[in-house]
Design a protein around this nucleic acid. Structure first.
Lengths: 191, 191
DNA sequence: CATCTTATATACCGAACGGTATACTGAATT
DNA sequence: AATTCAGTATACCGTTCGGTATATAAGATG
């Protein structure tokens, strides 16, 4: 692998393990086997490196979310698709996803939150939109779409976080587990 | 207020705003109007300060959780009590609760996670226990108590986080909101 | 009055931080 | 052959980091 990609990979590794603030530039360079000017040549600053890690790590997720929203179908189908996008992404790139989760909950006045906010906003907005569209199925939402979206994402994120840190090897969510989670969520809506 | 209490208060303020790693000792001292040896006299180290902030901030929550578990009643009543403990605590001490949330999702190999783990573990275990006891009401749990607990806490935490950061003034959860959230959660269990 | 304890300030420590000026390399371009 | 340029290394910058040695001031205790 080339230096640039190695730096990104090791940076994600370390950020995920110890957190952005707790990891020094020198530490990343040593891990990746490069010197500091090499890192600064590619990324300009520590924050620039963070932005690149997020951008290159979350690009696929972003595109997948658009596909879900353009889908036609019932709420159940849409939610299942959304859940699949998130769990599949977490399965394929669990360090990236868990790092994203730590940033989800990072303090609002931190560099890290500033960097990740657009991605989180998009996930949130897309989820709200799925519920907002569903008034035909679920009746007048009366603002409940926000609460539903929060509950849905809270359930998935919390679950993936828990699974991710329990199983050292990564995240594997079966179809069975997905259906079970969705079932747990849906019945509060339908009745 | 005495120096010791002022240091704790300002430390929580800054940790909550910017995160533990991003806040320097000097910054806390300046905010509290003391010098570094004063801080080190009381807390010994930065980590010691963190431990004290958590301990003195979460002591009440801890006691309340025990009270919920010793309660007799239906699952619904237990969950409502548990939810009330969490939302009331968040309402009375929203900085403390939101800081706790950031630590919930902080990297596993970080000082902060190490410090907060016992508290989080207790909340989690207590919640699992409520579901485990409920097999008479909900049928054989077959390990589902873990998933239910994760879903329940994910819903509440995510909701409080969202409310907490939206309303600058703090967290206010009405009885109506609590019932609505609980209703959203419960119907996936009963049917 | 002398002593001890609690609490605070001045001034400093070595190490690590993020970041950079400068020089060198080797391959491609002219 | 001379030049250019992307990429990398050595060695350094000033600043801030967490933490401390030492002195002192005020109140309690003998």
């Amino acid at each position: 692998m080339e230096n640039r990609e190695r730096i990104i990979a090791y940076a994600l590794d370390l950020f995920y393990l110890k957190g952005y603030d707790a990891v020094g530039i020198q530490e990343i360079c040593s891990a990746a086997g490069v010197t500091k000017p090499t890192l600064y040549y590619y990324f300009g600053s520590k924050y620039g490196l963070l932005e690149t890690v997020l951008k290159e790590g979350l690009g696929d997720l972003d595109a997948s979310l658009d596909r879900v929203l353009n889908m036609q179908g019932s709420v159940k189908e849409s939610l299942y698709a959304l859940m699949s996008v998130l769990t599949d992404y977490a399965g394929a790139n669990y360090k990236g996803y868990l790092f994203l989760m730590t940033l989800y909950y990072s303090p609002r006045e931190s560099e890290t939150y500033r960097a990740v906010k657009p991605y989180l906003q998009k996930i949130h907005d897309r989820t709200v939109e799925i519920f907002a569209r569903a008034s035909r199925e679920l009746g007048n939402m009366n603002g409940r779409q926000e609460q539903f979206a929060i509950g849905f994402l809270g359930l998935i994120n919390h679950y993936l976080l828990f699974i991710g840190y329990s199983a050292e090897t990564g995240i594997r969510i079966s179809e069975e587990q997905k259906r079970s989670l969705l079932h747990q969520f849906l019945h509060g809506i339908y009745s």
